[in-house]
């Protein structure tokens, strides 16, 4: 465990706390994408299947359970609990999940076939591909609302920071671990995912620097 990885994980936890706080404080689900949360839940459930077969560390297991549990709780709130259910605007969150799920599954099957992976690795690879695009529905919703609420903006910022820090973590590990296993699929997806946040970061920092409302160009 290095400082970049730990900071990345904490940034991820922090983003989830901010989203929960945002729902609680604003008492609505305006501008929050349920589709992104559902994609993240699928990502976590498929990636952490190894919870059932092997133990890495207490830290790893606890974080995995925390990610699955908190994301499931957010989905439950938006889907079934008031005032979130009635304020969630389904028509703005129109991303079709199958457009992300099917290509990722096909890619994961091809990758697994080439690498001779088993069942658990197939789902692990699927989750790597899916995580890269899981933020897309949320970015689309933001684009439609145009003006970005502070807390929603911070949520996406910390989620993006988590991915950026993971890239630094890989660089650090590549230099410091003698037999570090390079996984180029993971690297490629990590870069794609971070790149998706680049545009958001640009406007986020611009709004922080100049003050005033944070809005995205339409």
């Amino acid at each position: 465990m290095n400082i970049f990885r730990f900071a990345g994980d904490m940034s991820h936890v922090f983003s989830i706390i901010i989203l929960l706080l945002r729902l609680h404080v604003a008492k609505n689900a305006n501008g929050v994408s349920l589709k992104t949360q559902e994609l993240f839940l699928i990502v976590f459930c498929t990636r952490y299947l190894d919870l059932l077969i092997r133990f890495i560390s207490l830290y790893n297991s606890a974080m995995k359970i925390l990610y699955i549990g908190s994301t499931a709780a957010i989905i439950h709130m938006i889907r079934y609990r008031e005032p979130y259910r009635s304020t969630y605007d389904r028509s703005q969150d129109s991303f079709r999940l199958e457009f992300a799920l099917i290509p990722c599954l096909v890619l994961a099957m091809i990758t697994s076939l080439i690498r001779g992976f088993g069942f658990i690795e197939l789902f692990w690879t699927f989750s790597i591909y899916l995580e890269a695009v899981a933020i897309l529905p949320q970015l689309i919703v933001l684009q439609r609302y145009s003006v970005v609420e502070n807390l929603t903006g911070h949520y996406i910022f910390f989620l993006g920071a988590y991915r950026g820090l993971y890239i630094l973590n890989w660089i650090y590990r590549a230099y410091t671990e003698k037999h570090y296993h390079h996984d180029y699929v993971v690297y490629a997806c990590g870069f794609v995912q971070t790149a998706l946040y680049a545009d958001f970061f640009y406007y986020y920092f611009q709004s922080k620097y100049y003050g005033g409302t944070f809005s995205l160009p339409t």
Partner: peptide, 10 residues
């Protein structure tokens, strides 16, 4: 912590 590249990450 067992080390296995990206698989021991989150």
């Amino acid at each position: 912590e067992r080390r296995e590249g990206a698989k021991d990450e989150l």
